[in-house]
Design a binder for these strands. Structure first.
Length: 833
RNA sequence: GCGGACGUGGUGGAAUUGGCAGACACGCCAGAUUUAGGUUCUGGUGCUAACGCGUGAAGGUUCGAGUCCUUUCGUCCGCACCA
């Protein structure tokens, strides 16, 4: 054994041994209790960053700990390997996306192995490989057959830079989430998945998911955006069709002073055709169509609109009110038209002010001057100016008015969601081909399931412009209709890559199945994922799509589980402070543009993987932000050196050739306190690493243990069997965090077995019972003195001993003791006056 | 505006059930080792000269509050013209 901690040699040695020994291969042993720990698989960009290291270090500790604790652990890794960067690299450098992606997967796999993560690489999946996307296509066809996939001509979000459509979830602040170009609307025929059919289930399940962070659940609830209200029918004066609006406030119907339709509303052209208003309305409609999402939703924007020359008839009082169009009304929510109540809705209030329209209050809101409104009074109150409803509480009025409308056939209760169906077509090459065929005679027909996969063609050109690159293939598009056998054409769009990642956790359960996406028996054994770990940036997109897929797969009878992830841990960002141009110290996410990036490779080269893992787990609790600190890394490295030296000196200077020891016997006070530490550390690490996932405090307790062992080592009469036990315990409990160094020292101690295969130690409760305990003595709740008492002394004895303390006598002298609180083994509190 | 989280030393953070606030680490200070620097080891380190005071602020419940309740201020994150 070398006297210096040579992490480079140690780490490569053990990584090789683990590989040779198939240390982390997982078997489908249904008789054992399972534990499925999953980290979000990466996009193979080619390089790991600190965020990855943190994500996977957390997962690895959990996996190694649960394995030692006796579970059959599934801990897989794979690649979310379809996506734009590969295609962009192809356009730029002329490399085929697969070549580029494959190289990156190889590079990153090596980096993951160099960090000592305990993955079962035999279950690796890559979404870009035909053996995976074949089943992606199969699943898509099942969706189609169930009526959950459809093609529709719709205005869609279009990114002019990426030259592709985007799902609503991929539009951030009106811009493309990837390239930040303002998104425009375009009419295109596109494939959708009917996620809206599952809106209620996606929402309701959230209330029964205690293992998920509140924040993520709140974000999903918000996104689904359930709203209860009513549809109300207004007649349009001199027009044969009615104007239906959605409102959450039917109680304010008597306050309607005008109506607003979205510029895209289908009636607009018809209602204005041939009238003096036609030209102005047309101009407004065109102007809104050309505006980007960003311009239309800008907060600071003044309300704009046009009167269309028509009037609607209020169903509750027959009053005629003017109809406007304005882009503050969205076509794809509700009915695309609203009744405007400026007195009680802020947006309507602003519009009414801008256009000089009437403001009629119909709900008397407490503490609001209804005659001089400066903003809309949206709160609850008592109905006024509302015919028979006047005097009612407005919440009761909502129910009553809705019921009355329904009785007259002029309205009904309804529920609306913000959630839209999921647009999944992408005009790109590097994705799963949508396995659908267009036949002039039969319409859309799914590819015959026996012909899957529909392979991506290789004879394509990458220009980055216009339609999907698949159109440039000479062989891909032409095919036969699976139904009638006639000439037909394949769909040339590919799938959003978020589909690929919506079921990969199921494929891990049975990664090489060639007859099905997975064997339900295996899935039913391994699922649910017990612990899912990843970044909060996936709170909505990935985590909701995956839940949706799991529900559909359940409904298809392919799996028992309806929700995929029992527990979710969203790890915090890795930040690093930097000094800006004004000399301010700022913490920010590591990024190239800020120049505050620390690469895992440089840390591994300087300190080794064990130090990198230890620091990242020790510096902060996993869900909190972690600020990178070079001094902190030094500290972790120092600790591992301390451990190394402790064991080295033990082997060389203390233990000699002796390698087997009898069961230790505790002989004196020093032994007793070391034995206490051995057991207290096992207990603490078991609870913190196994249950709470507070790795920082688990590591802190191991550090205390090491400090204690150094102290013990200093005194001359060492109890060798006991010290040996302490050393061995240290290596076992430290192993999940820093697997290489501990494995090396374990074998240096002369052991033939491996720590990775060892059982987690049990602690001896009796060793944690002390003979004497420290009791806090307080006067009026303030600490005055401490008292050493035999363990489990009676209340009376404790109080008596406390009362005898000179500090207590002084403090109570001449005062009346009103009350004494005694909690045995803990505290005595004298209440004096 | 709506929703979520948080506020503790110079710093990262402990305090799991209402019971010694500041574990562990970083940094800093002193000493030992060393030719010296570094490494390593030992000790100290919330504030205060001290009585005491201290968990963003104010109030409350309690024998006792970082922890529970009320009010308030501040920070971070997500959503937002969704009728």
């Amino acid at each position: 054994m070398r006297d210096k901690y040579d992490f480079t040699a140690i780490e490569s040695k053990w990584q090789k041994i683990w590989e040779e020994e198939n240390a982390f291969k997982t078997y489908d042993d249904f008789s054992k209790e399972k534990y499925y720990v999953l980290e979000m698989f990466p996009y193979p960009s080619g390089k790991l960053h600190m965020g990855h290291v943190r994500n996977y270090s957390i997962g690895d500790v959990v996996a190694r700990f649960k394995k030692m604790a006796g579970y059959n652990v599934l801990h897989p890794m794979g690649w979310d390997s379809f996506g734009l960067p590969a295609e962009n690299a192809a356009i730029k450098n002329g490399i085929h996306p697969f070549t580029w992606t494959n190289q990156n997967m190889n590079d990153m796999r090596e980096q993951l192995k160099s960090l000592g993560f305990s993955y079962d690489w035999d279950r690796e999946v890559a979404t870009c490989k035909p053996d995976y996307y074949r089943w992606m296509q199969w699943i898509f066809i099942q969706f189609y057959k169930k009526g959950l996939a459809y093609k529709k001509d719709n205005p869609v979000n279009w990114c002019p830079d990426c030259q592709t459509v985007l799902a609503n979830e991929q539009v951030v602040d009106g811009c493309c989430e990837r390239c930040h170009t303002p998104v425009t609307k375009k009419h295109l025929s596109q494939w959708y998945l009917k996620i809206t059919d599952y809106a209620d289930r996606l929402l309701n399940d959230l209330d029964n998911m205690p293992g998920w962070p509140e924040k993520v659940k709140a974000m999903q609830k918000n996104w689904i955006g359930r709203s209860e209200g009513a549809e109300v029918t207004f007649a349009i004066d001199g027009f044969d069709k009615d104007l239906v609006v959605y409102t959450t406030r039917p109680d304010t119907l008597f306050g309607v002073t005008y109506m607003v339709m979205s510029p895209e509303h289908p009636y607009v052209a018809e209602l204005t055709e041939g009238t003096e208003y036609e030209a102005a309305v047309k101009a407004y409609v065109e102007a809104s169509a050309h505006k980007s999402e960003l311009e239309r939703t800008s907060l600071t924007k003044e309300k704009t609109g046009e009167f269309i020359g028509r009037y609607a008839v209020n169903p509750v009082n027959g009053k005629k009110v003017p109809i406007y169009i304005s882009d503050y009304v969205l076509m794809d929510y509700g009915t695309g038209a609203i009744m405007a109540v400026p007195a009680h809705d802020q947006r309507d209030f602003e519009f009414a002010k801008a256009f000089g329209l009437d403001i009629i209050p119909v709900v008397d809101v407490p503490d609001v001057d209804l005659d001089n409104l400066t903003e809309a009074a949206a709160a609850e109150g008592t109905m006024i100016n509302s015919g028979d409803y006047t005097g009612m509480n407005n919440k009761e009025a909502i129910v009553k008015i809705t019921a009355d409308l329904e009785a007259k056939g002029l309205g009904h209760k309804t529920i609306n969601y913000k959630l839209r169906d999921w647009l999944i077509s992408r005009q790109r090459y590097w994705g799963t081909p949508i396995p659908m065929i267009w036949c002039e005679k039969c319409g859309w027909v799914p590819e015959d399931e026996h012909n899957l996969p529909v392979l991506l063609p290789t004879d394509v050109e990458f220009t980055g412009k216009g339609e999907s690159p698949l159109t440039t293939s000479k062989t891909f598009r032409q095919c036969k209709c699976p139904k009638c056998g006639g000439d037909a054409e394949r769909e040339i769009d590919t799938m959003d890559t978020f589909l690929d990642s919506s079921w990969y956790f199921l494929r891990y359960c049975d990664a090489h199945n060639e007859d099905a996406p997975f064997d339900p028996e295996k899935v039913n054994y391994w699922m649910n994922v017990d612990q899912y770990i990843g970044g909060v940036e996936h709170a909505i997109l990935h985590l909701m799509y995956a839940r949706f897929f799991q529900m559909v797969i359940h409904d298809l009878g392919l799996a028992e589980a309806e929700e995929p992830f029992n527990n979710l841990l969203t790890q915090g960002m890795v930040t690093k402070g930097y000094t800006d141009k004004d000399g301010n110290y700022i913490k920010a996410k590591m990024s190239k543009s800020l120049g505050n990036v620390v690469s895992p490779q440089e840390i591994q080269a300087k300190y080794g993987s064990d130090t990198a893992r230890l620091f990242i787990l020790f510096a902060a609790p996993p869900e909190k932000e972690l600020d990178w600190s070079d001094e902190g890394v030094e500290g972790s490295y120092r600790f591992l050196n301390r451990v190394y030296r402790l064991v080295y000196e033990y082997i060389n200077d203390i233990r000699g050739d002796q390698t087997s020891f009898p069961e230790p016997v505790v002989q004196n006070e020093a032994d007793k306190s070391l034995n206490f530490m051995i057991n207290a550390t096992i207990k603490k690490v078991s609870e913190d690493a196994g249950g709470r996932f507070n790795f920082n405090t688990a590591i802190a307790s191991i550090m205390e243990f090491v400090n204690e062992m150094y102290k013990y080592k200093q005194h001359s009469e060492m109890n060798l069997p006991l010290f040996n036990k302490a050393i061995e315990t240290l290596l076992v409990v430290l192993n999940p965090f820093t697997p290489h160094i501990t494995e090396e020292m374990w074998s240096q101690l002369g052991h033939e077995d491996r720590l990775y295969a060892k059982s987690w130690p049990k602690y001896d409760e009796s060793a944690l019972v002390k003979d004497e305990v420290e009791v806090i003595v307080q006067i009026n709740g303030k600490l005055k003195d401490k008292l050493l008492m035999p363990n489990n002394s009676s209340k009376e004895a404790t109080q008596e001993a406390a009362a005898g303390l000179s500090k207590v006598k002084e403090a109570t002298e001449g005062k009346q003791i009103v009350k004494v609180i005694v909690v045995p083994n803990k505290i005595v509190n004298f209440v004096v006056r």
